[in-house]
């Protein structure tokens, strides 16, 4: 197993959030309504969390191959919101002493974790 997942990045602008809402049919106003979001506890628009989870899947696929995705158990927490104009990167490292568990993350351009979790690969 590779020790480090090949990172995958994207920039998040408001249009890409709207496009993601359209694809997923998730029009929660904290993602798409600037006025509502500003008055919400989030204090402004946040990207869908799952928009960034896709970067972890890409990092897993780009490192381990598409077939490996058939045996992944992925567990993540959204620990910080992703804001308009953030650049986020998904990646991970094999846990020390483990042969099949990666600590995975998505980080913003400040190096702050926005998602943390683990990806466990079952035996092939």
């Amino acid at each position: 197993m590779e020790k480090t997942l090949k990172p995958s990045s994207r920039q998040v602008d408001f249009q890409s959030i709207l496009n993601y809402a359209d694809v997923t049919n998730d029009y929660n106003p904290v993602h798409v309504d600037k006025e509502f979001a500003a008055k919400s506890p989030m204090g402004g628009i946040i990207a869908h969390g799952t928009m960034s989870v896709a970067l972890i899947w890409q990092a897993l696929k780009n490192t381990l191959g598409v077939a490996a995705l058939n045996r992944v158990h992925l567990e993540i927490r959204f620990v910080r919101p992703v804001r308009i104009d953030d650049t986020v990167t998904g990646g991970g490292e094999l846990q020390a002493g483990a042969s099949n568990v990666y600590d995975v993350w998505v980080r913003n351009q400040k190096g702050e974790d926005v998602i943390r979790g683990t990806a466990t690969l079952r035996a092939a």
Binding site: N28, V30, M42, H48, L74, I76, R77, F78
Partner: peptide, 8 residues
């Protein structure tokens, strides 16, 4: 309206 996805 306004629920937040906390984990998955």
């Amino acid at each position: 309206p306004g629920g937040v996805h906390g984990g998955q």
